[in-house]
């Protein structure tokens, strides 16, 4: 029947269009990754891994901002500490602080520090000119190293922000070791269906 052949052709065309649309949406799912990064970059959320160009270095002597330094270690047998836990700076003032890392193991290890800010809004005004977080850091066996961060705070920082926290987390570089993918044993014994008792 001519009509049914016509419909079937139209159907195939529709199938093609819809399949293409589906494929585009699948690609879009992955495209969300760079889109998300771009949004974060524009909104200055979670994108702090590059040195920044500083244009305005006028120091605002009229106020001081407390900058707190924080450090975290994840799955790395290192110690990682800021030399000072907090300092006070004037916005626009170029400041250097030092973090110290010690590799407590007898083997060389590589880590990557990831910075983060609290409050998130402050990230927009925190400019790092030099930071150990721009690249991965390799530490020899038992090596201790002091690593500087050079930064300034944009004088355009909103007046109501009086404290900024700069926090780093050092991760073992994936591939440079075997990251733990097993859930740690817990404090709660869960042998109701015969799992062994947990200890630490």
């Amino acid at each position: 029947m001519a009509l049914s052949r016509l419909i079937s052709f139209a159907n195939k065309q529709m199938l093609g269009k819809l399949a293409v649309f589906t494929a585009i949406m699948f690609a879009f799912g992955f495209a969300l990754v760079p889109i998300y990064k771009k949004i974060c970059e524009v909104a200055k959320v979670n994108d702090f891994m590059r040195p920044e160009q500083v244009k305005n270095t006028q120091v605002d002597l009229s106020r001081k901002v407390r900058v707190e330094f924080d450090s975290n270690i994840r799955n790395l047998p290192w110690t990682f500490k800021p030399e000072k836990t907090s300092i006070e700076v004037h916005p626009g003032e170029l400041t250097t602080v030092v973090y110290e890392v010690h590799n407590t193991t007898g083997r060389a290890m590589t880590g990557q520090a990831v910075p983060s800010y609290g409050p998130t809004e402050a990230a927009d005004h925190f400019r790092k000119l030099e930071c150990f977080c721009f690249t991965a850091q390799t530490f020899k066996a038992s090596e201790t190293r002091q690593m500087p961060v050079v930064f300034l705070i944009d004088p355009k920082l909103p007046r109501d922000v009086s404290t900024i926290t700069l926090s780093y987390t050092f991760f073992e570089m994936p591939g440079a070791g075997t990251p733990s993918t097993q859930a740690p044993a817990g404090k709660l014994e869960t042998n109701m269906v015969g799992t062994p008792r947990q200890a630490s």
Partner: peptide, 14 residues
């Protein structure tokens, strides 16, 4: 040694 979290008897065993 173990750390002090968890079941005491199980920790001693560990």
């Amino acid at each position: 040694y173990t750390d002090k979290t968890g079941d005491v008897a199980a920790n001693l065993e560990l």
